[in-house]
Amino acid sequence: MSDAKDLVLVVEDEPQMRRFLRASLGAEGYRVREAWTVADGVREAAAEHPDAILLDLGLPDGDGLDLVRRIREWSAVPVIVVSARGREEEKVAALDAGADDYLPKPFGTKELLARLRVALRHSRALASPGSPILAAGPLRMDLERREASIDGRAVHLTPIEWRLLALLAAHAGKVLTHAQILREVWGPNASAQSHYVRVYMAELRKKLEVDPSRPRLLLTEPGVGYRLADAPR
């Protein structure tokens, strides 16, 4: 399934969790490096250039979010936070600090591998020259011609709806927080509030979803933000 030889750095102080992650990632063909402190994690990240990092937040020498902030100074490597801190505020804090995704403990292997694949694909897409076509499930957006379609049916979007949808599609499969969406769509200085995002999402759902109260494409992460479904479900 994965490109063999992708290197995953696991930063986790709990030996049983490392054991489980080593086994399940290894079985999937990933190479695994392990660290159990913030300091070690930063050192490993700098020396080994991993393709992705799985990061626990409660580490013996500090908070995992410090590691994200430090690594972000020089690297765009995808970071998936895996943590027993499952509160929404904590997820938002991790994502806003620069993590790419957040997986609350306990989680299953399937979920972990799916998130990892999405993260790896994004980092590769960012590295390669951009394509003017964004596609996710039934959705297709042609950025050059500014045309959107769902299941082959053309959809007419207002400028804000277009920016919002293009942003979500560019990060398909990844959660974007309300703050990130507001900043990207309405601009860093806009006085927009989080209900703007919700109202425009409701409009997009009306145009794109068969049943807006049972969305298949534009998914809500309550208290955190939104995620555009990566594949038809």
């Binding site: 207002t158 400028p159 804000i160 277009w162 425009y200």
Partner: peptide, 16 residues
């Protein structure tokens, strides 16, 4: 309930 400023519906315009 709060209002959201309406936008001119001039078709897809903004850039990402």
């Amino acid at each position: 309930s709060p209002t959201v400023p309406s936008e001119d519906d001039a078709g897809p315009g903004g850039s990402v």
